[in-house]
């Protein structure tokens, strides 16, 4: 739902990341329907048949969905600012000056205004992930996907990334997060979904799912994590 934060939790291999990747068609869907604002991401519906879209149209739809990866996937041959302005210049067609102005503002927003000229390998994990968030935001997405954004970070650095995500949620960004940070889920999420072996086990408000889970599987998972 627009402006809401949905959190996906569950053991590894339960299909959380796969689901996230389906949303922007990095993974193909075998069955079922997946729509954003009433539109399929990778397909066009015609009668009862789904036609796979041309890569150009898929790219256009992906551009509206921001994604943040577990391993940051920053472009190592570009500076932090270069990473942020790359897609705005070449996909949205902004001028270099305009994109850099926006890019610097975004880097400042994630608290890295002074790191614009640093290369990714000169940044800590938490800083890299914040650049990755700024890079995704630079496309003005209507939805942000977070694929375990803090799993590859030192415990000390988790906080700074979650802080940025909290800020985003407060600003009204629509977000879907796969995470193991249950504290974050409890605090920020509007909806928590527990998945196991590729299926949704239960879904509801954080208080329902994390506080008093109905399903046995959820209970046993939570008892091990907490």
């Amino acid at each position: 739902m627009r402006g809401q934060v949905a959190v996906l939790i569950g053991p590894s291999g339960s299909g959380k990341s796969t689901f996230l990747r389906c949303i922007n068609h990095l993974e193909k869907i075998d069955r079922g329907r997946l729509c954003i604002d009433g539109e399929f991401v990778g397909y066009r519906e015609h009668g009862t048949v789904l036609y796979e879209l041309h890569s150009k149209e898929i790219a256009q739809r992906r551009a509206q969905i921001g994604m943040v990866f577990q391993h940051f996937n920053l472009f190592p041959h570009m500076t932090a600012l270069g990473n942020v302005v790359e897609a705005p210049i070449h996909v949205r067609g902004l001028s270099k000056e305009h994109a850099e102005e926006e890019g610097r503002a975004l880097l400042a927003k994630v608290g890295l205004g002074d790191k614009a000229d640093a290369y990714p390998r000169q940044l800590s994990g938490g800083q890299q992930q914040r650049v990755a968030i700024a890079r995704a935001l630079a496309m003005h997405p209507k939805l942000m996907l977070f694929d375990e954004p803090t799993s590859a970070l030192d415990p000390e650095l988790v906080g700074e990334v979650l802080g940025v995500m909290r800020q985003l949620a407060a600003d009204g960004m629509t977000m879907i997060c796969v995470t193991h940070e249950l504290g974050f889920a409890r605090e920020v999420a509007d909806n928590v979904t527990f998945m196991d072996e590729g299926v949704v086990v239960e879904s509801g408000t954080p208080a329902e799912v994390l506080g008093s889970p109905r399903e046995k599987r959820t209970q046993s998972f939570l008892s091990k994590v907490l």
């Binding site: 922007n24 992906r62 551009a63 920053l74």
Partner: peptide, 19 residues
């Protein structure tokens, strides 16, 4: 992961290859 990140930003194949 580099290609995926670029795809997720809405970049197309030719552009991803080149840039």
């Amino acid at each position: 992961g580099q290609t995926q990140a670029a795809q997720a930003l809405g970049m197309r194949k030719g552009l991803i290859f080149r840039r």
